[in-house]
Amino acid sequence: MVLIFVVLIPVLMMLIYSFLTKEFRGGVIWEFSLDAYDQFFCSRGLFGDEPCSIEWTYINIFWRSIWQAGAATLLSLVIGFPTAYFIATRPERVRPVWVFLITIPYWVNLLIRTVSMKFMLRDNGPLNDMLLATGIIDDPLRIVNTNFAVQLGLFYSYLPFMVLPIYASVERYNFALSEAAADLYASKWVTLRRILIPAVKPGVIAGCILVFVPSLGSFLAPDLLGGAKNFMIGSLIEEQFKGNAGNWPFGAAASMILLTAVLIILVIFARQQARAQKAVS
């Protein structure tokens, strides 16, 4: 019971705050207002007296966050799936060692990892030095402060979350099924695509969610690697509470919108998982 209060009351307070009036430079005035949501969705012209037309600034930031998180998820899937598969097909004794290797970076401070990434990707950083020295490129790549840098940062931050659930489901997979398919003259890749991947799909989806959700609201990677131009929703929220904007109700409203999006994703996911469970049994 205590738990319900600890988790739900702050969220409820956040919801209430998003409907209050902002106080100049932080805090709220206890007066009902829809200003925060109005500001997010509506454009009312230069003097604020025109009827509501769609305000694209924040919707675009939200859309960019989805796009960036999606790209990071795809990137982690491309690298993470083969890795998870490879680990799951090692001898049972060495598997925990591989898993441990994958988990260690997750426990290292996210801030330090992001700073390390920035250090490595700098214009005159080690990555560019290496590429220049080997003659692959003639001019240093400008990666920091691009969308791509943010995608790399997010990918790097949450890669272990992709590997672990996929590993868990491949490990449980019964390879006799693949054998059977191969006996029926299925090629290796067909076996992978038609038999194994459908069987481990719950793990793949779980991995994608675990990368996508934290990426969506992340603050450090876009802030440190993306610079001012590659704003994501996390930075927008931070700006309202810590930065110069100082508009708490707007920050609370943006958080509620983010939370709602995440909860929708999680509900869809939970229903899919339930259906997959039913299909198996």
Partner: peptide, 22 residues
């Protein structure tokens, strides 16, 4: 049937990416 060429290099790439910055 369990082995796919290219998966080992991917795993090595994964480990390198995870550890290189650190």
């Amino acid at each position: 049937i369990k082995r796919f060429t290219g998966f080992l290099p991917m795993t090595i790439l994964c480990i390198v990416i995870l550890y290189a910055p650190l």
